[in-house]
């Protein structure tokens, strides 16, 4: 187990270096001088400008700047945002909000998706199965920002069940609507995946053998069907996390949730390089960690996958 974790972490290093390089290069290629942008409409003193450029290593070649950046990442220093706050502070403030939102979305996804998927799989070809197919296709094909607006308008404005925007108070009840919206397309994927997986598992010989042993349906379905069906669903969860991060950026923007996604969205619009680069780096890091964890859960679910003796 320890061996496997170490190997996975070592494998993550080139991925991290590659992605950060790409991000850094893209931000570097953005037009405009970032120091100039700091001053807004005012014309800065050329001497001050040169001094600042030197302080931020902006006069150095790209690769040297990148290496400075890497050093800062390793030492945990993400720099200072335009508003003068340290990026670390901004991360510490926004991260828990997004984590809460993402977790709520994952719980909704798993509970709703697996339940509907299981029932649909057990009733293959029946009315429930077909209507779940139509609804999940609908959610899959509508872009997430449209679902945001629809949710905001009907559930928030017309029915008044939820607050239309979240604002500063990102408590769990306030995050329910954004979480539902965020989970909607993932639920659709999850339903399809669980359904297919359940149908496949039902065809296995061991399910028939379980019945032949005298087990009741109430035992066979959760123990021998659902348990096995969850293996591919869990793997999908890792990939879902990426969709969740992208979705969070849009959803947080529309619902005005003070989370990582919203901050990143604002930073991109304002061209705040340190914030963009740092946030994306943290997101990539998170993505890698989540996927390593998923792989470990996978080993628990499926004993055939033994990483190390």
């Amino acid at each position: 187990m320890v061996f496997y974790v170490i190997r996975r972490i070592l494998q993550a290093i080139p991925v991290l270096i590659g992605t950060t390089f790409l991000i850094y290069f893209l931000v570097f290629a953005m037009p405009g001088n970032p120091v100039q942008a700091l001053f807004g409409d005012k014309t800065p003193n050329p001497a001050l400008l040169a001094e600042l450029e030197k302080q931020y290593h902006l006069n150095e070649p790209f690769i040297v700047q990148y290496l400075y950046y890497l050093r800062d990442v390793v030492t945990g220093n993400f720099g200072v945002s335009f508003s003068g706050q340290s990026v670390n502070d901004v991360l510490a403030r926004t991260f828990p909000v997004t984590a809460r939102l993402a977790l709520m979305a994952v719980v909704i996804e798993m509970v709703v998706g697996v339940t509907i998927g299981l029932v649909a799989g057990l009733r293959k070809g029946k009315l429930f199965d077909l209507s779940s197919l139509v609804i999940s296709l609908l959610f899959l094909s509508v872009p997430i920002f449209v679902i945001c607006f629809i949710g905001q308008f009907f559930l928030g404005f017309k029915l008044g069940w939820f607050r239309t925007t979240v604002g500063a108070d990102a408590s769990i009840p306030n995050l329910i609507l954004p979480a539902i919206v965020l989970a909607s397309s993932l639920v659709a994927i999850n339903i399809r995946l669980t359904r297919g997986s359940v149908i496949e598992t039902l065809n296995n010989d061991f399910v028939r053998t379980a019945y032949s042993k005298g087990l009741s349906r109430r035992r066979v379905i959760p123990v021998h069907v659902l348990r096995n069906s969850l293996i591919p669903v869990t793997t999908q969860l890792g990939a879902d996390f990426g969709i969740l991060l992208v979705g969070a950026t849009v959803t947080e923007g529309i619902f005005n949730v003070p989370g990582v996604g919203n901050t990143l969205y604002q930073a991109i619009i304002r061209g705040e390089r340190p914030t963009v680069v740092s946030f994306v780096t943290v997101m990539v890091l998170l993505y890698l960690v989540v996927n390593i964890i998923i792989d470990l859960i996978y080993a628990v679910l499926d004993p055939r996958i033994r990483y190390v003796k």
């Binding site: 053998t209 032949s212 005298g214 087990l215 349906r217 123990v223």
Partner: peptide, 26 residues
């Protein structure tokens, strides 16, 4: 439920393929 009662204790069953008839996750 009558069938569930007969299977196992009335009629035991040994299936054909030992590779596919045990649940791999238990």
């Amino acid at each position: 439920s009558q069938l569930e009662h007969v299977r196992g204790r009335g009629i035991g069953f040994v299936p054909q393929d030992p590779m596919s008839n045990l649940n791999p996750v238990w």
